[in-house]
């Protein structure tokens, strides 16, 4: 666990980047620091590995004040990933990944073997190991950055906008990859972003910071969406909070009915469309095992009759869910009454 206790950072020019920040980053989960540009996210993050020292207050790693630890020693035990990957251009990919193991005095063979393991873990081809960073795409470089941070198996990982410089498609796949990795590794991750959608997607807990470096709200993403603490948080979350919240409800519990005869399926059991007078109409599918209630609702909205087609991982029809079935679950997961702000519209 990482604890911030009344942490303030005032830069030499008088800028207060972080103001009396107190929060706890739980072990083994992803905590996201999110907020507009200049709100002190990076400063907060870098005080953990002492790239910046706090002006006052205390940051503790499992109870130990970070200021009692020699910075290079502290940093070798904390993975650090930055926006532009920051790979060493003069070193091959495998040696980039092995940076911290080398620093810790591992022999070359063991360090490289470990690096190869990590390249595989982050989904990179072993053939890239002997390339130089300039020979990799931005997305691949970011993966190497993550592999390098994980090389010595640190319990804590600090990530500062690691995916914001890549295009949206690559970004989404890097995010998915991080979630997959985390389900295996269970690291304590502090992830900084200015993108609220990324925060909500990745965070087990999301800390929203406001300019001036003060904590506006800290909560799980679903709670954040339904119960923003104030207008600032509500405004920052943006539109469609109700719909977006459905992403956190599994579609597993949607009551499925048998596929009606007017759903045409192919030989392989996959849907072809809804039978209408003059042909086949569009349909929408969701996989109850892996998708969210949002996907189920979306699928229902894509079919002319409002019925979503449930499929298995092969895409074969498992059943259907009408709007009534989806509505039952929506009602079950309605926001709690105490959330005073939950029903209000976001201010324009």
């Amino acid at each position: 666990m990482i604890t911030f206790e009344g942490v303030t950072k005032r830069y030499r020019d008088g800028t207060v980047a972080v103001d009396d920040l107190s929060l706890e980053v739980p072990t083994g989960a992803i905590t996201v620091f999110v907020g507009p540009s200049g709100c002190g996210k990076t400063t907060s993050l870098r005080m953990i590995n002492r790239m910046i020292d706090a002006t006052s207050g205390r940051i503790a790693l499992d109870g130990q004040d970070v200021r009692e630890i020699d910075p290079p020693t502290l940093r070798r035990g904390i993975g650090y990933v930055i926006q532009q990957a920051g790979l060493f251009p003069h070193r091959r990919i495998v040696d980039n990944v092995a940076t911290v193991p080398y620093l810790l005095g591992w022999n070359k063979k063991k360090a490289r073997a470990r690096a190869m393991e990590l390249l595989e873990l982050v989904g990179l081809d072993a053939g890239l190991a002997n390339r130089y960073p300039f020979q990799l795409s931005g997305g691949q470089q970011q993966r190497v950055g993550v592999a390098r941070a994980l090389a010595a198996d640190p319990p804590v990982l600090l990530m500062d906008e690691p995916f914001s410089a890549v295009d949206p498609v690559v970004r989404a796949s890097l995010q998915d990859e991080l979630l997959r990795l985390q389900s295996e590794l269970r690291k304590t991750i502090v992830f900084v972003t200015h993108d609220i959608d990324e925060a909500v997607k990745l965070g087990d807990t999301v800390a929203v910071l406001r300019v001036g470096g003060r904590l506006a709200q800290m909560a799980g993403p679903a709670t954040l969406l339904t119960e923003p603490a104030d207008d600032f948080v509500r405004g920052f979350l943006g539109r469609d909070r109700g719909i977006r919240r459905l992403s956190f409800i599994s579609a597993k519990e949607v009551r499925l009915g048998p596929a009606p005869p007017d759903l045409v399926t192919g030989e392989d059991g996959r849907p072809l469309g809804w039978r209408t007078g003059d042909g086949l109409a569009a349909y929408g599918t969701f996989d109850p095992e892996t998708d969210s209630l949002r996907a189920a609702l979306d699928a229902a909205l894509l079919s002319p009759n409002g019925v979503a087609v449930a499929v298995d991982e092969e895409g074969r029809v498992r059943g259907v869910a009408g709007r009534d079935a989806i509505d039952e679950l929506l009602a079950e997961y309605a926001p709690p009454v105490r959330g005073a702000g939950s029903a209000e519209e976001a201010p324009a």
């Binding site: 790239m51 930055i82 920051g86 790979l87």
Partner: peptide, 28 residues
């Protein structure tokens, strides 16, 4: 690149290691 310098310190290199292992080879 400032990011590179930053990454070197962030990985836990000490000042002289940053100079000899990162800055010098890149500036060569």
């Amino acid at each position: 690149d400032a990011d590179l310098r930053d990454a070197a310190y962030g990985m836990g290199l000490r000042g002289p290691q940053v100079l000899f292992r990162t800055l010098t080879p890149v500036a060569l």
